[in-house]
């Protein structure tokens, strides 16, 4: 009984940590972008203020049940994937649900959020939302393939489909997979550029094209849920890559350093890039990232 309580407490702590870290990273991103643009920029806690304000706004307009469930789906997807990810190595404060095969489950559950959003956005009747969702799903086809290939390469190479298992191998051997199988790492990193949806892959909510796409009918609390689940999801993605390729983290400071460095890749790339068109974005992912993914699998099978 006590351990169940501890687990629940730990899950809540994990969520709060993910929320705080994701939000702060978002704020830091805004600050960094502002500095590149010769501006002073907002304070790093600006995202918290924005989130609280969005939460305090009234939400009087809705478009039916699915519209309510859309943001909820995204939140569920983020939180569930968070629960499967070992935040720190061997730490009882951040328990996670692990079983053999959770990596495959994770691949599915990470796609669940955007699909839920598609349902929600479809019901608003706003053509911008509908087009944005179509674009998002097509783009997902683009980046999911190299991403899955990178993960398959790892699974094949180390004969395990458990995240914890992969993490343990790295911790015990002391070799990070980003050096053991650099091709898989490259494919995963390039695919993660698309997952973050920053420029040049921000085609889903492209403001000058679709007026923020699927989000265009969501204000107030809807947007709050989307924003916070987005932050949690960013943390999930960063931590997952750290766990799979960079040997995990034994304490929070190392985790923050590693994830922040990883986070800087999409951020810096985004500052200086215009937006791709949908088909250009897919072509991009089916170019080098896919090639790296293939090489990674070949490497994993034969070496």
């Amino acid at each position: 009984m006590e351990s169940l309580l501890m687990n629940i407490l730990g899950a809540v702590t994990t969520f709060l940590l993910a929320f705080a870290v994701g939000m702060t990273y978002g704020g830091l991103r805004r600050k960094i972008v502002a500095r590149v643009q010769n501006r002073y920029g907002p304070p790093f806690y600006q995202n918290f203020i924005d989130a609280f304000k969005l939460y305090s706004k009234s939400t009087a307009i809705h478009h039916g049940a699915m519209h309510f469930l859309g943001p909820a789906f995204i939140m569920v997807s983020s939180v569930v994937s968070l629960m499967f990810i070992p935040v720190l190595t061997n730490n009882q404060w951040f328990p996670n649900l692990n079983f053999q095969g959770d990596l495959i489950f994770l691949i599915y559950i990470m796609v669940f959020g955007p699909l839920g959003m598609a349902l929600g956005a479809g019901q608003t009747g706003n053509p911008n939302s509908a087009i944005g969702v179509t674009r998002g799903l097509s783009q997902m086809v683009g980046f999911e393939i190299p991403w899955v290939m990178a993960l398959i390469a790892l699974m094949v190479q180390y004969k395990t489909t458990s995240i914890t298992g992969l993490l343990d191998i790295q911790v015990q051997s002391g070799h990070w997979f980003m050096f053991e199988n650099p091709f898989a790492f490259s494919a995963a990193i390039l695919a993660s550029l698309g997952m973050f949806r920053y420029s040049p892959f921000d085609i889903v909510g492209a403001p000058t094209e679709l007026a923020s796409g699927p989000m265009s009918e969501n204000g107030g609390k809807f947007l709050f849920v989307m924003m916070s689940s987005g932050s949690v999801f960013a943390f999930v993605k960063l931590t997952l890559i750290v766990d799979l390729f960079m040997g995990g983290a034994s304490n929070l400071i190392i985790l923050v350093i590693k994830t922040f460095l990883l986070y800087m890749i999409p951020v810096t790339y985004g500052i200086v890039s215009p937006r791709y068109r949908t088909e250009q974005s897919i072509t991009y992912f089916w170019g080098w990232p896919l090639f790296f993914g293939l090489i990674a699998i070949i490497y994993a099978v034969f070496f």
């Binding site: 805004r30 502002a34 643009q37 010769n38 501006r39 002073y40 920029g41 907002p42 304070p43 600006q46 203020i49 924005d50 304000k53 706004k57 307009i61 403001p207 007026a211 923020s212 989000m215 265009s216 009918e217 969501n218 204000g219 107030g220 947007l223």
Partner: peptide, 22 residues
């Protein structure tokens, strides 16, 4: 909104659609 005056430091920011705007 840009460098010399930079309203974003005061929390002023653009919103794309009426639902999101204050």
């Amino acid at each position: 909104m840009t460098s010399r005056y930079d309203a974003e430091r005061l929390g002023v920011r653009g919103a794309a659609t009426p639902r999101q705007a204050d």
